[in-house]
Simulated scan of single mutants.
Amino acid sequence: MTPGQQREADEAVVAGRRALASLEEAEDALESASNWGAFDLFLGGAISSVIKHVRLGGAREALERARDDLYAFTRELRDVSDIEVLRMDVGALATTLDVLFDNVFVDLYVQKKIDDARDNVAAAIRATRVVLARLEETPR
């Protein structure tokens, strides 16, 4: 490996580690939102719906950071794709319905969106770890 290739590999590893940390932060934020969603579904009311959506806002911010870091990682790698799946779109209507008409059907819908986002983040974490492991195994 030439010094230039080594530098590029090192930059990719740094970007990959940053992306992995962001993904793990997003995973934690989604876990918190999911827990509040479960509480809201079974025992909650308007207040728990509001708290859940505050947590979802934090999860959206974490997902944005993770997506930005994954874009940087892909620029370094040039061969990682499918990062657009890191999107969580509960929607303003669902948020409004969830808070105003707090019922099990809207709660289930929102919970499904959270679960889908968690699945996407988990898949991105696995893929990032695989690529990082390959990069780190590369002879220097």
Rank of each mutant, 00 (worst) to 15 (best):
V14N: 07
N35E: 15
G44L: 13
A15V: 01
F42S: 13
A29Y: 11
E137G: 03
F42V: 00
V14C: 01
T128V: 06
D107M: 00
G44V: 07
R75A: 04
T138P: 12
L30Q: 03
L43R: 15
D107L: 00
T74C: 09
M88Q: 05
G45P: 15
S22T: 11
I125M: 06
I114C: 01
L56F: 04
I125V: 14
I114K: 03
Y71E: 15
T95V: 11
A19H: 03
Q6K: 04
D119N: 08
E27P: 14
L93Y: 07
I83H: 09
Q5M: 03
N120P: 01
G91C: 10
D40E: 14
A59S: 12
T74P: 04
E24I: 01
V50W: 10
I51R: 10
A15H: 07
T74H: 08
P3F: 02
V90N: 07
V13T: 03
E136D: 11
Q111N: 12
F73Y: 12
A123N: 05
A9M: 05
W36P: 13
T128F: 08
N35D: 15
V50S: 10
R87L: 03
R87M: 03
E27K: 09
A92E: 15
R118Q: 12
G91M: 08
A127T: 04
G57W: 08
V106R: 15
L41N: 14
L63A: 03
E11L: 04
E11M: 05
R17P: 07
V104E: 15
E31F: 00
Y71M: 09
R134E: 08
A66T: 11
R18T: 13
A9Q: 11
D102Q: 12
L63M: 10
V90A: 05
G57V: 02
L135P: 12
L23I: 06
A72S: 14
L97W: 08
E137T: 09
V80T: 07
V130N: 06
E84I: 02
A46E: 15
R140W: 07
E136T: 06
R78T: 13
G58E: 14
L135N: 09
D82W: 02
L86K: 01
L63N: 06
I114N: 07
V85L: 07
A12G: 02
S34A: 03
F39H: 11
D89R: 11
G58K: 12
L93R: 13
A117W: 11
I47C: 04
T138G: 02
L23C: 02
E27V: 00
D10T: 02
A117P: 05
L70Y: 04
L20Q: 04
F42G: 13
E27F: 01
A9L: 04
P139G: 03
D40F: 07
S22F: 01
L100M: 12
D40I: 00
S48C: 13
F42R: 15
A66M: 12
Y71P: 15
T95L: 08
L20S: 03
L93F: 00
R126G: 02
A9H: 10
V131T: 10
S22D: 13
G16T: 01
R78I: 09
R118S: 09
R7Q: 08
D10A: 01
A72C: 05
